[in-house]
């Protein structure tokens, strides 16, 4: 075997060994952490749901009383959207709809819209977004309580014209230097209400489904 080929062989075997060891380490870590990470995500999501519908308002397991629906036009996504249902003594209390505002300033904004059984909003939270830090991200409740303006609103309060930011003639505040993010959220919240209105019955009666994480 010529020294050149011998050298190449040793180098490539060494590189392969490093690749195998590195992959094995990552795989082991993944294996050790997968279960905990899943639990953590579940707990975080459940916390988020409980912020909108506190645990004294319902007695079912929010996390497993869930359905998946699809409505590209009203829920903003061509993928299935989850609806978590809160009940007390088997009576519907509220539905938390995980809808999407597709037209944020930098992409999709993921919302949780909690709607009481009577069609009024219990709360809105932005759970995932990439809006400009310091400007559009004020829609996020961790940055400002702008989203509280939706509380107790419904399809008739305000009327259709009022469901817009002030610059567009509506009643909701925009931010200095950022109109697009709040506009997207107002629009998506309104559409989510429309969806709730349209499917009011089946949202609470559809049997819940097993969700694969």
């Amino acid at each position: 075997m010529s020294p050149l080929i011998r050298n190449m062989l040793i180098s490539s075997i060494a590189l392969a060994i490093f690749a195998i060891v590195g992959t094995a380490l990552v795989a082991t870590t993944y294996d050790m952490t997968a279960e905990r990470i899943k639990e953590n995500h579940r707990a975080t999501l459940l916390n988020g749901l409980h912020v909108l519908v506190p645990s004294d308002q319902h007695d079912n397991d929010l996390f497993s009383d869930v359905i998946e629906v699809m409505d590209k036009d009203l829920l903003g996504s061509n993928k299935a959207v989850r609806i978590y249902r809160a009940r007390k003594e088997d009576k519907p209390v509220a539905a938390i709809i995980n809808s999407i505002a597709p037209d944020g300033y930098s992409g999709r904004i993921e919302l949780l819209v909690a709607i009481r059984a009577d069609g009024t909003i219990q709360g809105v939270r932005i759970v995932k977004h990439k809006e400009t830090p310091g400007l559009g991200d004020a829609i996020d409740h961790r940055h400002s309580n702008w989203a509280d303006a939706f509380i107790t609103r419904s399809l008739s309060n305000p009327d259709k014209k009022g469901w817009a930011v002030k610059r567009d003639g509506g009643i909701f505040d925009q931010f200095t230097g950022a109109t697009i993010s709040p506009r997207a959220v107002v629009k998506a919240t309104y559409k989510t209400l429309l969806y709730f209105d349209k499917h009011h019955k089946e949202i609470f009666t559809k049997p819940s489904m097993a969700i694969e994480e």
């Binding site: 180098s11 060494a14 590189l15 490093f18 690749a19 590195g22 992959t23 380490l25 990552v26 870590t29 993944y30 050790m32 952490t33 905990r36 990470i37 953590n40």
Partner: peptide, 25 residues
């Protein structure tokens, strides 16, 4: 001759492991 790919491999593994461990614990 293989040090750069090995270093890249190590850094990528370290970053991934840190991310997973932080996410879990």
């Amino acid at each position: 001759e293989i040090r750069i790919p090995v270093f890249v491999l190590i850094i990528a593994s370290v970053v991934t492991i840190i991310e997973l461990a932080m996410n879990a614990w």
